[in-house]
Computed example of a mutant assay.
Amino acid sequence: MQIHRNIWLGPPAAGLHWKDAAWLAFGVSLNARALSELAPGGVLISAVPAKLGVRNRVEAAIAAHEAGPLAPPGRA
């Protein structure tokens, strides 16, 4: 799935629920310009299935939130 110019999102082979695909695409699109600058040749982001317990999901969400958006080198 093309997100932005040369930024692609690859779903898992088993497929993806449409809501999950929408959220993943939205998340990638937030950083698409930075990714394009960091990797002018293009980027394929592969989604892989993960089985997480409720506690791990919360920890993953917190870690993602704290990481913040990507910024090209020298622009942080």
Rank of each mutant, 00 (worst) to 15 (best):
L35C: 05
I45G: 00
W23H: 13
L44P: 00
L9M: 13
A13M: 06
G42S: 02
R75I: 05
P11T: 07
A22M: 07
A67N: 10
E66F: 09
A32E: 13
M1V: 15
R75Y: 08
L44M: 12
A14F: 01
P69E: 07
S36K: 07
A61Y: 02
G74H: 02
L38N: 11
L35V: 01
V28H: 03
A64F: 02
L16S: 02
P11G: 08
L30D: 05
K19V: 11
G42T: 08
G42F: 03
L35W: 08
F26I: 05
S36E: 15
G15P: 10
K51Y: 09
G42V: 03
G53E: 10
G15S: 06
L38I: 09
W18L: 13
A22R: 14
R5N: 11
A22V: 02
W23D: 15
D20L: 10
A67F: 06
I7K: 01
V43M: 04
A60G: 01
R33W: 03
P40F: 10
R5M: 07
I62V: 14
V54T: 15
N31S: 08
V28A: 08
R33L: 10
P69I: 04
W18Y: 11
A32P: 07
R5P: 00
Q2W: 13
S46V: 11
A63L: 07
H65W: 14
A14S: 14
I62G: 01
V48G: 07
P73I: 02
N6A: 10
A71T: 14
V54K: 11
N6P: 00
L24M: 15
L16Y: 06
A50L: 15
I3R: 11
P73K: 02
P12Q: 05
P72G: 00
H17T: 05
E59N: 05
A32D: 13
M1Q: 09
N31G: 02
S46H: 10
I45Q: 03
V48P: 01
A64W: 06
R57I: 04
G27K: 03
A50R: 14
A32L: 12
G53N: 13
A67V: 03
A47Q: 11
H65R: 11
A34C: 04
R5H: 09
